[in-house]
Design a protein around this nucleic acid. Structure first.
Lengths: 189, 189
DNA sequence: GTCTATACGGTGATAGAC
DNA sequence: GTCTATCACCGTATAGAC
């Protein structure tokens, strides 16, 4: 992997766990093993530019995971349930220290940086579209699919906050069941 | 209001809009109008202690709002819908710059401060209990009430993230409708 | 492309007068 | 209880050699 990509990957990881302000450029250089002098060579606009790229990278990766996982089952309600359980397992595996790569930066920078807010907005747009497309493919109307997708993205982000704060996967697991019910309910009526 | 309380109130407000790391003690002193020398007199353990008190204050206030608003309607599904719509209106009134007093600090400090994580955990516990109690009062089982309460708190926090990032109340409004449906569905079956 | 050194501002926190 | 002054530290960012 190129030095530039290595820096972005490390930054994504640190942003997910620590957020924007707690993640220093020194730490990024140190943990990425990248040459210290090359940071401003690759990212002339500094921390904000690097963060925007890292957010974008995390968003694309998580969107890919959504699309992959949502293709594994036929029934949309069961699909969402399994997906959420997978998130819960993944969170537990990391001791509930990660799992929401965008949320912290989105909240921290909502009032401080247009650029980063736009990056987070695009990220959530990707998630939402991925879920919505899956529901449309199962026969939901465009409108209903979009509504469900919004609820699910919100429930994921909120569930991650609760699970990280409680250091327990239980909230995500509870939410998994409720989302299954509401998707099933929407599907059958 | 006492100087001490004024400091806490200002801190709560700034934490809600900016988070922990972006809120400086200088700004707190300046905006609160409090005497600069009294900060470490009232909060000898510094920023962390002050923040813990501010989180606690915000949590108690929001819990009071939950309890008040949830008592205004009889039907639990309609109650949740109206409550969420109220949140959406409130968010819109502040141009979607606030509305989630705990989330930012919870995510920022999840891996950095046991004390603040505990404060956020207690805050979410209050919310969850307030919602659950309302559902039990409507005849839900303890278990089902607790599950719904978890989903609702997560949906609120996640919905706030989306609305703040998009600078639009639309996500919260969409979620309001979905939560009404799932509560109604739970109630009738 | 990468290095070292450093400028510059802001932070939380402390000391001591009053 | 409050004020002012100041500390030590850390952050981002830049300059200039190689």
């Amino acid at each position: 992997m190129s030095t530039r990509e290595q820096i972005i990957e490390t930054t994504s990881h640190l942003l997910e766990q620590q957020g924007y302000y707690a993640t220093g450029l020194n730490q990024i250089v140190q943990e990425s093993g990248a040459p210290k002098g090359s940071l401003y060579y690759y990212f002339p606009q500094g921390k904000e530019e690097l963060t925007a790229e890292a957010i974008d990278r995390s968003a694309r990766e998580f969107t890919r995971i959504i699309e992959t996982e949502l293709a594994r089952y036929d029934d949309p309600a069961e699909t969402i349930y399994q997906f959420m359980q997978g998130l819960a397992e993944h969170a537990q595996a990391s001791d509930c220290r990660g799992g929401a790569p965008i949320a912290t930066v989105a909240l921290e920078t909502a009032g401080h940086s247009e650029r980063l807010t736009a990056a987070c907005q695009a990220a959530y747009g990707r998630y939402q579209s991925a879920f919505a497309a899956r529901f449309v493919a199962s026969g939901f109307s465009e409108e209903r699919a979009a509504q469900l997708a919004t609820l699910i993205v919100a429930a994921i982000e909120g569930g991650m906050i609760l699970s990280r704060t409680q250091r327990s996967a239980a909230p995500l697991q509870t939410i998994a069941g409720d989302l299954r019910d509401i998707v099933s309910f929407s599907y059958k009526r």
